[in-house]
Design a protein around this nucleic acid. Structure first.
Lengths: 170, 170
DNA sequence: GTTTATGCAAACGATTTGCAGTGGT
DNA sequence: ACCACTGCAAATCGTTTGCATAAAC
């Protein structure tokens, strides 16, 4: 059930070129449909995002790219991320407190997050049960589900014995 | 299963004095335990919050109080809300995009929210099933649950036939 | 060629913080 | 009296926007 766990942000890793080009197709179609353009910056960002295995903030992307000697304007990043969300490549994941966290969801198993209130470690878990539950809950209200966000705050195994931290869900 | 629905923010309503004084006790104890003080501003805010039946933002509180001719500094509000969250009277609820939403949870049934992506209507629903589910999911990871946040985005009954809006979960 | 995108820097808006004065305890 | 709290205004910080230039189509 546990899919993985994470700590660092937006660390670029080896890319599956196959996946990249499939994602690029998705993006290309999405853009064409609305008369938008597939610029080199958008391709760069798409690559960077698919390469990141973790949750990241817009700023992380900027830094990560700079370290690779690639310069992309901050505004471009902020303007591009919503596009990628909209075409289903990216999703906004859990929120720390009042800032945007993203993770790519292209080809990855749907999941949600547990976040340790002490060490901030993030543990992912399969969300299929929640997916069923959300339908069951929405139906009697005549509500049509588009998406959900589910996050659990608490103490991870390692922090359970350490000093307590009361803050429930920042 | 459906507990209610909401639209406007922080509209003061008639208060159950009994509830107010119980809540005040909770707050008083919480403060005393850490050498903090029960000021008149904190009492004012507690009252205002208990009186609000809806989800609200810090700014809503400020405005609502001003309308009643009560002046409380914005900073005081921002400094007080986390205290109330910490002592369990308040909770941070769903987040629009990157701002803080609160609702009081003193004596109210635990619930989560469905939010219509078109009209922003909020529908509350009982969260007991989610509470069981979160334990089931946390246990194998050795994770101790403190709290969760669950929100469903989609189309409410009324908007289902109106113009579509793609944005999944802002 | 036309139109959308980029990069920069300025603008924004929510939240936070420093500080002098006020008020619980 | 002491120390925390308030209010104000200034400071932060993530995010958005305006505009001149560059790049897709």
């Amino acid at each position: 059930m546990n899919v993985g766990s994470a700590k660092d942000n937006a660390v670029p890793t080896k890319l599956d070129e196959q996946t990249v080009s499939r994602a690029e197709d998705v993006l290309r179609n999405y853009l064409r449909e609305r008369g938008l353009k597939l610029t080199s910056e958008r391709q760069t960002l798409l690559r960077a995002i698919l390469g990141s295995q973790e949750h990241f903030e817009p700023e992380d992307l900027l830094v990560s790219l700079r370290q690779q000697g690639i310069r992309v304007g901050k505004a471009t990043i902020y303007r591009t991320l919503p596009l990628l969300v909209d075409c289903g490549i990216l999703r906004r994941a859990f929120l720390g407190q009042n800032r945007a966290y993203y993770e790519h969801c292209f080809g990855s198993m749907p999941h949600d997050h547990m976040i340790c209130t002490i060490c901030s470690r993030v543990i992912e878990f399969d969300s299929s049960e929640i997916r069923q539950l959300r339908e069951r809950v929405a139906e009697p209200a005549g509500f049509t589900v588009q998406s959900h966000r589910f996050q659990i705050a608490g103490l991870c195994r390692e922090c359970k014995t350490g000093p307590q931290n009361p803050s429930p869900m920042a």
